[in-house]
Computed example of a mutant assay.
Amino acid sequence: MDRMTELELFVTTAELGTLSKAAEQLNISNASASRHLGALESRLNVKLIERNTRRLSLTSAGSEFYKRCKALLAELNEAEASLTSSQAEPAGTLTVTASVSFAMLHISPLLPKFCKRYPQLKVKVVGANRYYEIMDTDIDLAIRTREFEPDSNITIRRLAETRRILAASPDYLHQRGSPKQVQDLADHDMLLYSHANQPGILNFRQGTTEASITVVPKMETNDGQIVRAAALAGLGILVQPMYIIHDDIVSGRLVSVLDDWRLPSLTINIAFQSRRYMPAKTRLFIDFLLEEFEAQQYEKYWTR
């Protein structure tokens, strides 16, 4: 039996959940697929897959072997792609994940230009307010606001920095007044993003003076756009990064408060697998993002 076919079949079966679907995708018969999988387990002398009438599942040994095989096959594909990327137009599917707000505001608007430049590439955008495990998924790159990755197999490239500010609608501030000191926030309705680091504790700095304020939210949510919508409706004072509310501040739909106090900034990074051979599609999109962010001078406006 061909070892490469065995590995491809095993990985595809693990991802699709059935041997028949894997056989169909690899264009081999079910009987042949069963023989390949049996030969692999016999050669390794270990059970990799638990079989039942509905769906296959990986054993603990199979789960570990799957990760290694997937990485091995990806490395091989990337090595081949590196030899042809300069001669052939990049194709396939690029999968990008980011928070819903970042995907809406700063990825989707760029896609027409990117797809026009590389018409053979398809783009899949996964909007999620949680961090996907890049190593165990088909994610090519992720946009994240954390300084480092706990997994040494993940590389990060700095994209931009952004301030976090407090802001409210003119109607809210007209009715409730604008806070003059950070301690005044205790008398205001606060709108918080629950995935922030310790959302209820606001650490301020003014020169060499520091202040830490605990606030009880009027509303708390796991999505930045919901926070923004609530603030625009006059529900309270939000705490959000400028990359989400910059246009609202410029237009006057929201008004920043306590500008002389600073919250810790956020660094926006591009995260991707550390590989010897980076797929051309990933490299091209990273270069494209860096180029566009520099041209638009986003960091200049987001850190004022």
Score class of each variant (00 low, 15 high):
residue 18 T to W: 04
residue 145 T to E: 05
residue 253 R to E: 13
residue 266 L to F: 00
residue 169 S to G: 09
residue 203 N to F: 01
residue 233 A to D: 03
residue 212 S to G: 04
residue 259 D to Q: 11
residue 152 S to K: 09
residue 53 T to A: 10
residue 170 P to C: 10
residue 54 R to E: 01
residue 295 A to T: 06
residue 51 R to T: 02
residue 171 D to C: 07
residue 225 Q to T: 11
residue 220 E to F: 09
residue 156 I to Q: 04
residue 228 R to L: 08
residue 237 I to V: 12
residue 190 M to E: 03
residue 236 G to F: 08
residue 138 D to Y: 05
residue 90 P to H: 08
residue 88 A to K: 15
residue 225 Q to N: 14
residue 130 R to A: 15
residue 156 I to F: 05
residue 256 S to G: 06
residue 233 A to C: 05
residue 8 E to W: 05
residue 94 L to K: 13
residue 16 L to T: 14
residue 7 L to I: 15
residue 122 K to R: 15
residue 194 S to G: 06
residue 206 Q to H: 11
residue 196 A to Q: 07
residue 193 Y to Q: 06
residue 94 L to G: 02
residue 213 I to T: 05
residue 249 I to D: 01
residue 202 L to Q: 13
residue 59 T to V: 09
residue 201 I to E: 13
residue 163 R to F: 00
residue 188 H to G: 03
residue 2 D to I: 03
residue 175 Q to K: 10
residue 253 R to Y: 07
residue 17 G to R: 04
residue 127 G to N: 10
residue 81 A to Y: 05
residue 24 E to I: 01
residue 294 E to H: 14
residue 209 T to W: 00
residue 15 E to I: 07
residue 146 R to I: 09
residue 241 P to F: 01
residue 63 S to F: 03
residue 263 L to A: 03
residue 183 Q to S: 12
residue 195 H to S: 06
residue 198 Q to S: 14
residue 78 E to K: 00
residue 260 D to A: 01
residue 110 L to Q: 07
residue 215 V to K: 01
residue 172 Y to I: 02
residue 211 A to R: 14
residue 238 L to E: 04
residue 279 P to L: 01
residue 128 A to E: 15
residue 234 G to Q: 08
residue 187 D to E: 13
residue 168 A to K: 11
residue 181 Q to E: 11
residue 185 L to D: 00
residue 106 H to K: 08
residue 39 A to G: 12
residue 164 R to E: 15
residue 9 L to V: 12
residue 91 A to W: 02
residue 84 T to D: 04
residue 215 V to N: 07
residue 154 I to C: 04
residue 201 I to A: 11
residue 120 Q to H: 12
residue 64 E to R: 00
residue 6 E to Y: 02
residue 12 T to V: 15
residue 30 N to G: 10
residue 150 P to Y: 08
residue 8 E to Y: 06
residue 140 D to L: 00
residue 218 K to I: 07
residue 109 P to F: 14
residue 290 L to Q: 12
residue 94 L to T: 04
residue 38 G to Q: 10
residue 111 L to G: 06
residue 204 F to C: 10
residue 296 Q to V: 00
residue 275 R to E: 15
residue 221 T to P: 03
residue 220 E to D: 07
residue 144 R to V: 08
residue 26 L to D: 04
residue 44 L to W: 03
residue 5 T to S: 14
residue 59 T to C: 10
residue 259 D to Y: 01
residue 74 A to I: 04
residue 247 D to Y: 05
residue 8 E to D: 11
residue 84 T to R: 12
residue 196 A to P: 00
residue 162 T to F: 00
residue 92 G to M: 08
residue 6 E to P: 01
residue 207 G to N: 11
residue 73 L to S: 10
residue 243 Y to F: 15
residue 108 S to P: 00
residue 117 R to H: 10
residue 269 N to A: 10
residue 33 A to R: 10
residue 73 L to Y: 09
